[in-house]
Amino acid sequence: MGWMTLLPPLSGIWFAFAELLEQTAFWEAFAMTARTFGIGLGLSILVGIPVGVLMGISTRADKILSIWVNLFISAPITAVIPALMPIFGIADATVIATVILFSIWVVIIDTQAGITHVKDSLVEMGRNFGCSRWKIIIWIVIPAALPEIITGVRLSVVRAVKGVIVGQIVIALIGFGGLFNTYLSYFLMERFWALIIVVFVMSFTIIGLVELLERRIAFYARTR
């Protein structure tokens, strides 16, 4: 098989791209990807931040959870996907679970790091003025940890993008994973590359947006 079939000329890919946008299968896959990505990432952030805060302020929670978080953050989560399929079915739920397993750990770890690195003097200041523990956490500790939390969210977006793609590829029947599989089995290399480009561009757009947001918040990190 020649390289030409594998790497078709750009004009061909461009043509395939235009075709792709007319297909309902593409838009269905797109909607499914967006949906599972959004739900999975949202849950990761909504659960990850409170867990990270808890681990940052309670040594007991840290002791119980940190082994697992540290194990899973670098574990080959891909291996777990086949186990998710029979539990959650060949559907959205499996992809959502994959996205969560890819993206939640980094949110937890970065949030915790942010919380533990808050300057002691800020907490002492709050205590000095008679703030309750609760007020210190809400008014001082969490806002002070925000730059790290945002970094965690950005990294989790990167991982969620990978998770949503890897999940669909391993399942190979739904979403973009299904399309990739179909295109490859029928040697539709132009379409395959067009889809790869779509996926890459989508991920860069999302990550770029989050980076923009991060830079906006980072301004006060300088004085810490």
Binding site: S121, E124, M125, F129, G130, I140, P143, A144, Y220
Partner: peptide, 27 residues
């Protein structure tokens, strides 16, 4: 007793006015 800190312990995301008012806000 009110404390003044070596590293100032100011909230970086709050203005001078908000920082100065923090003690009263806590009360």
């Amino acid at each position: 007793r009110a404390l003044v800190f070596q590293d100032f312990a100011l909230l970086p995301w709050a203005t001078v006015l908000q920082n100065v008012a923090f003690g009263l806000r806590a009360q």
